[in-house]
């Protein structure tokens, strides 16, 4: 898991590493900010992923974002949601020692 997250947040890509980290932390910690034009998709992936629509991605494409950019954004947000639960679970176990 460490390798997956380290690569996702640190490997060269279409998006900058600071944006990927911001998106990941926004979903993982519910803290920090992401650029306004990306916020709607990131929040949907965090809280109601089933509601993401074709239009959400078309909207970003039309705003000039490449498919690689969107792909990286989706991965960072999705992994942030998974990590949020992973860490909460381990914290609860730690507290029950």
């Amino acid at each position: 898991m460490e390798k997956a997250i380290a690569s996702l947040l640190g490997a060269p890509g279409e998006t900058g590493t600071s944006l990927r980290q911001a998106v990941f932390d926004r979903v993982r910690l519910r803290a920090g900010e992401v650029p306004e034009n990306l916020r709607a998709l990131v929040e949907k992936i965090a809280d109601r992923p089933w509601s993401v629509s074709d239009e959400d991605l078309t909207h970003l494409r039309e705003a000039g974002y490449s498919e690689d950019y969107i792909y990286e954004l989706v991965l960072a947000a999705a992994a942030g949601a998974g990590m949020r639960r992973f860490e909460a679970g381990l914290r609860a176990m730690e507290g029950a020692r």
Binding site: M1, L41, K44, I45, P49, W50, V52, D54, L57, Y71, V74, L75, A77, A78, A79, A81, G82, M83, R85, F86, G89, L90, M93
Partner: peptide
């Protein structure tokens, strides 16, 4: 057993969001 279940939760929550976002 709990740790393993939490790990499954991590992968399912992550992949589920990739699946829904990418369609």
């Amino acid at each position: 057993a709990l740790r393993q279940a939490i790990y499954v939760c991590f992968v399912s929550c992550t992949m589920g969001r990739i699946a829904d976002a990418l369609g």
